[in-house]
Write a protein that binds this DNA or RNA. Structure first.
Lengths: 192, 192
DNA sequence: GGCCTTACGTGATCTACATCACATTCGTAT
DNA sequence: ATACGAATGTGATGTAGATCACGTAAGGCC
């Protein structure tokens, strides 16, 4: 499916826009193609856009002490990603985003999103609900973190996104779960 | 400060409403007084409202196996709370909310919120930003969970909300941090 | 092809925290 | 004031997972 149609159907799940309205909205997006490994947002940079994933897989992650990496989000097609803290507060990025595979994304600037939200009530509604769902997912993950041990979280993740098992290297899954790659390795190889 | 004024100023931080508009919005809220220990939302119940805290302190928490409690949020004045998963998806509550101290809250029904969001673009804008901030806070807490050890999270929490130290029993702070009360006790008594 | 970086497996050891057990202190109701 | 449940302190012990150390396998790239 082409990018425009994908975004259209994605938005249509939450709000109804006329053909003209959607075309107008879409005119504020820019298509970008990235290569595997390429950075989308790097720590310390200014963040001006958020990204709608059309194809491929991205990761949003945080680096501590130049050593440990924690993955906040794997972004798959129809997911949105950015460093939202930096984007909304107009501060430098503290989160990195890069591409696990080659990827096509549609990007929109912060100003354009806010402009569209102001101009079209439906667009503001759409973004409210999108954030809602993100908030709920984040809260659910937080609970899972407190509640479950690593094995349970690992199985939960794979049950939710089976594609990940073949798509992303295991050490990235470990970084998402918040455990060392060694622990994850032992886990699904049945040791201990 | 009276409840109406508190809500007014809270909303005014994000959007400008005329006097009449705010009065109209406010007419959809109902004042509720709760006693210390009283339940606001109980697991398994239908959830119809969200709550704006005027005074006192509430907690939103999750119970596992009838044994372990994890606190998702302490809700202080000008904070909003509910079981948002149940509220938005119209399912039974999985989260409990109750009062740590006597508390006054303003509640609004899910339907009224959605109605106001539809009628007044500014109100939708307000709720989008409120959720935004909640999402960012949740993400930050998630990172802190993966990143920091218990001691660092404890100090982070107290730095952010010093009132909690005297207001809330320690075992609830432990339940927020996701550690046992024993570990927390040893922590700030300098053992180990 | 061969090279070299990245991914992955697995043992040994160490550590933060959970859990159990019990003592003590505090709050609140009668 | 007394009493009883809730909150807290603290020891002993067990365990999940981190860390270090090393080896093997698998992709990119010249």
């Amino acid at each position: 499916m082409e990018a425009k149609e994908l975004l259209k159907q994605h938005i249509a799940k939450t709000v109804s826009l006329s053909e003209d309205q959607f075309d107008y909205v879409f005119s504020h997006f820019t298509m970008q193609a990235y290569k595997k490994g390429q950075a989308v947002i790097s720590e310390g940079e200014k963040v001006n856009h958020e990204y709608f994933v059309v194809s491929g897989c991205l990761k949003a992650f945080y680096i501590t002490d130049e050593i440990k990496m924690y993955i906040l989000q794997f972004a798959m097609p129809t997911w949105w990603t950015s460093d939202y803290g930096a984007l909304y507060n107009q501060t430098k990025a503290t989160i990195n985003v890069d591409c696990i595979t080659d990827a096509d994304v549609l990007r929109i600037s912060n100003e354009d999103r806010e402009k569209l939200c102001k101009e079209l009530h439906e667009v503001e509604h759409f973004f409210r609900w999108r954030t809602n769902r993100g908030y709920l997912a984040s809260q659910k993950r937080l609970l899972s973190f407190m509640n479950n041990d690593t094995k349970a979280r690992y199985e939960e993740l794979l049950a939710m996104y089976p594609q990940l098992y073949n798509l992303v290297p295991k050490h990235l899954i470990a970084a998402y779960l918040g455990v060392s790659r060694e622990t994850l390795s032992r886990l699904y190889n049945g040791h201990r």
